[in-house]
Amino acid sequence: MRIPILKLYEYLLITIQVELDDRTAIQFQEDLLDKIHETGAKGVVIDLTTVDMIDSYIAKILDDVVKMSALLGAKVVLTGIRPAVAITLIDLGINLKGVPTSLDLEKGLEKLQQELEG
């Protein structure tokens, strides 16, 4: 299964709407990095509104992809992390320090715009 990556001007948008198994998550990581490289995108928004569970493995993949994208020159914002998911991550001892977040897709795009233009 592949997660679609949309291009909008110089940004990439991803809405994760499937249950993230390990294979899909790894595949997503590869696809996103390829796409950043290919398009020269400066910003990425990953929307997690419909994701009801993030375990340490998926958190690690997300954390990694943010750092890897930064190496390729793209800033990543995670948006729409649900309260239940946030609480579970904190229980697990994962705070994703240094990963930018926003309430929703729209605010995520605003954040990117401000940081990249301002």
Binding site: D55, S56, Y57, R82, P83, A84, I87, T88, D91
Partner: peptide, 17 residues
């Protein structure tokens, strides 16, 4: 509740992994 559902599902995921 939703939070506990997420906790349980996540715990299972960790143990299974």
């Amino acid at each position: 509740g939703q939070v506990d559902q997420a906790r349980i599902t996540t715990a299972i995921s960790e143990l299974a992994r």
